[in-house]
C-alpha cells in the first residue's frame, strides 16, 4: 500500500518521543519503585480484603457513572448541536464546569447538596434514598467529574454528520427512529464509546471529590485511591505504588480492550462501506 499523505513519520515520531518522555518515563518510576517487592508481597497488598472491596466500589461506581454519562451525554450533545432554545450557549458553556472546578470543591458542594438537609437530599430522603455518604454518592461524584467527556467527544462528530445522509434515508422511506438507529448511531458510536471509556478511566482514578461524599467506611464506601493515600500517610511509598500499579494495569487492560474493539469495529464498518459503494 502506498501512502499518499505526508507527515506520517514526523507525526508518529513526535508523538512517541513526547509520550515516552512525559508519560512512559515517569510511569516507569512506578514500576521501578514497586519492583523492590517480590510477587508474593505484591499479591498480598493487592488482594487484601479491603483492597478487593475497594476495587469493587471503584470500578463498579465508575462503570455506572460512565453508563449514565453515555446515555445522558448522547442526549445532551444531540440537543446542543441540533436544537435551538433560549440560553443554549450558556448551557453549552456549563458543560466544562466539572473540569474547571477543583475536585475538592465539587466533592464538598455535592455532599452538601445531597446530604439529608441539602437542596436535593431533602427531597430524596423521604423517598428512602440516601445519596451522600453511601456508594450512591460516589456514583454522583464520578458522574459529575466525568460528564464533559461524552458530550464534548460527541459534539464535533454530530456537527459533522452530513444532513444529506439523513435526508437520503428519509427519502428512501426510513422512519426517524430507523434513520437514527441505522444511520446516525453507527456514525457516532465510535465517539460515544471513546467518550464513555475516557469518562470511565477518569472516574476510576478520581480521589479529590469522592472522599468528601463517600463516607469512606472500610469495605463499604472506600475507594482504591483512598487506600493509596492511606499507605502514603504511613510513608509506605512502596505499598502505595504497588496498589497504584495494580490499578494502572487493570485500567490499561480495559482501555486497550475497548480501543482494540473500536478499531476492529471501525475497520469492519469501513470495509462494509467500501463494498456498498
Amino acid at each position: 500500500m502506498k501512502r499518499v499523505l505526508p507527515g506520517f513519520g514526523l507525526s508518529l515520531g513526535c508523538t512517541i518521543v513526547y509520550l515516552s518522555l512525559l508519560v512512559l518515563l515517569p510511569l516507569s518510576g512506578l514500576a521501578f519503585k514497586s519492583s523492590s517487592l517480590d510477587w508474593s508481597q505484591l499479591w498480598a497488598i493487592a488482594s487484601g480484603e479491603r483492597a478487593l472491596a475497594s476495587y469493587r466500589v471503584t470500578f463498579g461506581a465508575s462503570l455506572l457513572a460512565a453508563l449514565i454519562n453515555a446515555l445522558f451525554g448522547l442526549i445532551v450533545a444531540w440537543v446542543l448541536v441540533r436544537y435551538r432554545f433560549p440560553g443554549k450557549r450558556l448551557v453549552d458553556s456549563l458543560v466544562d464546569l466539572p473540569f474547571a472546578l477543583p475536585t475538592a470543591v465539587a466533592g464538598i458542594t455535592l455532599a452538601t447538596l445531597y446530604a439529608g438537609n441539602g437542596w436535593v437530599g431533602r427531597h430524596l430522603e423521604p423517598l428512602g434514598i440516601k445519596v451522600a455518604f453511601t456508594p450512591l454518592g460516589i456514583v454522583v461524584a464520578l458522574t459529575f467529574i466525568s460528564l464533559p467527556f461524552v458530550v464534548r467527544t460527541l459534539q464535533p462528530v454530530i456537527e459533522d454528520i452530513e444532513p444529506e445522509i439523513e435526508e437520503a434515508a428519509a427519502t428512501l422511506g426510513a422512519s426517524r427512529l430507523q434513520t437514527f438507529m441505522r444511520v446516525i448511531l453507527p456514525g457516532v458510536f465510535p465517539a460515544l464509546l471513546t467518550g464513555s471509556t475516557l469518562a470511565f478511566s477518569r472516574a476510576v482514578g478520581e480521589y479529590g471529590s469522592v472522599i468528601f461524599i463517600a463516607g469512606n467506611m472500610p469495605l463499604i464506601s472506600e475507594i482504591t485511591p483512598l487506600l493509596i493515600i492511606s499507605k502514603l500517610e504511613q510513608y509506605d511509598v512502596v505499598g502505595a505504588t504497588a496498589l497504584a500499579g495494580v490499578m494502572l494495569v487493570i485500567s490499561f487492560a480495559l482501555l486497550l480492550g475497548v480501543n482494540a474493539l473500536q478499531w476492529w469495529a471501525a475497520n469492519r464498518h469501513h470495509g462494509k462501506h467500501a463494498v456498498s459503494l
Binding site: V23, L27, S201, Y207, P225, I228, L255
Partner: peptide, 14 residues
C-alpha cells in the same frame, strides 16, 4: 491510543 489515554486512568495523586 491506549497509551495516550493512560494519563486519564492514572489517579491524579499517583
Amino acid at each position: 491510543i491506549t497509551l495516550i489515554d493512560l494519563p486519564f486512568a492514572v489517579s491524579p495523586v499517583v
